Structure formats: C-alpha cells, structure tokens
Simulated assay, not measured.
Amino acid sequence: MLVATKERKKKTCDNPACGASFVPQRLGQAVCNYTCGLAIKDVNQAKARKSLAQVERREIKIRKEKLKSRGEHMREAQQAFNEYIRARDQAAGHPCISSGKPLDWSGNAVDAGHYRSVGSAPHLRFDERNCHAQSKQDNRFLSGNAVDYRIGLIARIGQEAVDALEADQSVRKYTVEQIKGIKAYYRAKTRELKRAAA
C-alpha cells in the first residue's frame, strides 16, 4: 500500500538580495541555501547592533540629563525662549525693537534682547513682553540701547504694558521641573511657528 506524500509548496527566499523560489527541505526553512542564510544572519546582527547602540545612546542621554545642574537647565530654557522670540518677530516682520532698522535674518546678526535685562530683573527673563528681536549691534555693543528700546516697546505693546513691566518687582523661583516645562513649551511654539511659515 502506497502512502500519498504531501507535496511541499514552493517558498520565496527571505534574503531580499536573492528572492528565488525554492522547495523547503525542512520545517521553518526561510532561505534557499546556506549563503542566503549567512547573509540574513549578518543583516539581523547589524540590526541588533544598531538597536543596541540606539538604546545605549538613549541611556547616556538620560544619565546626562540627570547630571545637569539647575543652571544648565536654565540656560537651555533661555535658549529655547530666545529662539522663539526671534522666530515670532521674524514671522511678524518686525524691525529691530530699538533702532527700527530692518533685521538681517540671513546670518547670526539677531539677538533676543530683553528690555529689563536678565541680570537686573531675572523674574522677567521668560516674559514675552520684555523680550524682542534686536540687532546684535544694539544689544551687545550699545548695551541694549535702552532709551530707543523703550520708545520702540511703547509703539509695539503700549505705554500701559511698558509701565507694568517697569513696575514689576515680583520674585519668581523656578523648580527644575518648571524650567524643563518652559524649555519644552517654547521649543514646541517655535516648531509650530516654523511649520506655519513653511
């Protein structure tokens, strides 16, 4: 008595470089020959190494984040805030707040200048009314050009808002978590502005 043997179906080799049709000789065979098996193994090992490297980089980033001081977090938040101010004023087409001259956005010639400086009024460092796009010339070499800044500020936000800024003597202490939140908030706002401009 003859037993009918089940005819095996042809499969396509899992090696993307090969793709040949073959009849599997054993259960679970995914490649047509030994060479294709080695090629797949090499690809899988490379993927595993890449994945491991990504995990290690992520872990290093987390460890570095934990080691950052409050001052480093504050600097990063200030950078994110300043970048937002420059993007906001560029999108609005504002000239330099103090000189009234058009700003050169092509290079690195624009600062986010504070009306009341971060040194004298640290509680206003993240106040959007207190910070506007300003030429590096006015901000750095003319000490902020405060008299002309005030005139430009009154024209932009109004006398009442300027008086409120000048009168604000409140004290604000930020926790590290609040600083991280400020950084994330302004980075998101900057991305949103850049997307809208594109």
Rank of each mutant, 00 (worst) to 15 (best):
65 E>Y: 08
181 G>F: 04
4 A>P: 02
54 Q>I: 05
151 I>A: 09
127 D>Y: 08
29 Q>V: 08
55 V>G: 02
172 R>S: 06
133 A>E: 10
167 A>K: 11
107 G>H: 02
135 S>C: 13
66 K>T: 03
57 R>K: 15
168 D>R: 09
52 L>F: 02
18 C>Q: 07
186 Y>Q: 01
41 K>C: 00
108 N>G: 06
18 C>W: 12
156 R>P: 01
130 N>G: 07
154 I>Y: 05
70 R>C: 01
23 V>Y: 00
55 V>M: 10
144 G>N: 14
94 H>M: 06
134 Q>W: 04
196 A>W: 01
75 R>Y: 15
109 A>L: 06
155 A>L: 09
95 P>M: 15
67 L>R: 13
126 F>E: 01
72 E>H: 04
171 V>E: 11
57 R>Q: 13
111 D>A: 03
144 G>T: 08
53 A>K: 15
10 K>S: 12
157 I>R: 06
185 Y>Q: 14
174 Y>F: 15
66 K>R: 12
30 A>H: 05
131 C>P: 14
40 I>M: 12
134 Q>R: 05
31 V>P: 02
17 A>L: 10
24 P>V: 05
138 D>P: 00
163 D>N: 14
26 R>P: 00
43 V>I: 10
195 R>T: 10
189 K>C: 05
157 I>N: 07
15 N>W: 06
1 M>D: 07
131 C>W: 09
32 C>R: 03
15 N>V: 02
110 V>F: 05
44 N>S: 10
114 H>C: 07
188 A>K: 14
25 Q>N: 11
63 R>E: 13
162 V>F: 02
125 R>F: 00
66 K>Y: 03
183 K>I: 07
54 Q>G: 08
22 F>Y: 13
83 E>N: 14
183 K>R: 15
78 Q>G: 07
32 C>N: 07
78 Q>N: 07
108 N>S: 09
122 P>L: 06
108 N>E: 11
134 Q>D: 04
178 Q>Y: 06
142 L>W: 12
13 C>E: 08
175 T>K: 01
121 A>I: 06
32 C>P: 02
152 G>E: 14
101 K>R: 13
11 K>D: 02
138 D>G: 01
69 S>Q: 05
23 V>G: 01
161 A>H: 09
36 C>N: 05
80 A>Q: 07
34 Y>I: 06
50 K>T: 14
92 A>W: 06
180 K>T: 02
150 R>I: 00
75 R>F: 15
189 K>S: 05
184 A>E: 14
15 N>G: 03
23 V>I: 14
149 Y>Q: 01
68 K>P: 00
191 R>M: 08
81 F>I: 09
14 D>N: 09
47 K>T: 05
172 R>Q: 09
93 G>M: 09
49 R>K: 15
123 H>V: 05
168 D>I: 13
